[in-house]
């Protein structure tokens, strides 16, 4: 564990001392904020209309009409940004030959993999939590429920953990960062939409595909429900991707 933190610490240092982190964070926040205020604008327009036409408050819900769609959009932006965060992790070490330092050190491969994961997930957590200003803003202008906002963040963080694990797996497959980013983007998107095949796949395989889909598990979090099966799904997804990463790196040595 100490070794994983060492790896993660170095990795974070390199994130924060380079432009990558700041560029990604700013782009993420700008995109998110733009979409978020569109949603908010649309909401106030609708509630104004509702008040004029019906002459009464329909109880349009900030949680359902602002926070939930905001989280959905955030998930999409993350899908696009995470490959850029994770693509470096192993590809750069291999290309720059620094991986030999880690491989010849008395640390286990799994500690290295976990350290890389921690660092990237940490960066993502910082980025994601910075977006919470928008939710705080809602509390200043209205009275949303806090529960679903918090579980929403939990779900988003877990889902990004899965994205990160996939990104790291992709990065372990190559020494080319672009290839790593492309691979992880493709695989993430696939895991996102795999549930769409449920209907075509019929009653046997359909539910399995639906269960596998990354985004379907987010829904209950956004509604304020923390279901242990969803948490279990995300955690085992991460574990499995990291396990594969370990296998890939280990088999590189044996070939």
């Amino acid at each position: 564990m100490r070794n994983s933190f060492l790896i993660a610490k170095r990795e974070l240092g390199s994130f924060f001392s380079s432009a990558i982190f700041y560029v990604i964070t700013v782009v993420f926040l700008l995109l998110y904020s733009f979409i978020y205020f569109q949603i908010l604008n649309f909401f106030s327009f609708q509630s104004l209309q509702a008040a004029q036409v019906r002459g009464m408050d329909l109880g349009l819900n900030l949680n359902d009409m602002v926070i939930q769609p905001a989280f959905h959009n955030m998930a999409v932006i993350l899908l696009l940004m995470i490959p850029i965060v994770t693509m470096r992790s192993f590809a750069e070490e291999k290309k720059g030959k620094t991986f030999t330092l880690l491989l010849s050190s008395p640390i286990h491969l799994k500690e290295i993999v976990f350290g890389k994961f921690l660092a990237c997930w940490g960066v993502l957590t910082v980025m994601i939590l910075l977006s919470s200003y928008s939710i705080a803003f809602l509390f200043m202008i209205g009275r949303p429920e806090i529960g679903p906002a918090l579980t929403g963040y939990l779900g988003i963080l877990l889902m990004s953990g899965c994205f990160v694990a996939v990104g790291i797996l992709a990065s372990s497959l190559t020494d080319n960062q672009i290839v790593a980013a492309a691979l992880s983007f493709g695989f993430m998107l696939f895991m996102w939409v795999v549930g769409w095949g449920a209907q075509a796949a019929g009653p046997n395989i359909g539910p399995i595909l639906e269960y596998l889909s990354l985004i379907d598990h987010l829904e209950r979090f956004l509604k304020g429900i923390v279901d242990s099966s969803d948490v279990f799904y995300y955690l085992s997804f991460m574990f499995f991707a990291l396990f594969l990463t370990h296998r890939v790196l280990d088999s590189n040595r044996w070939r």
Partner: peptide
């Protein structure tokens, strides 16, 4: 190693 395993950004 043949190429010094140094992180150029440190």
């Amino acid at each position: 190693p043949e190429n010094p395993p140094v992180y150029l950004d440190m």
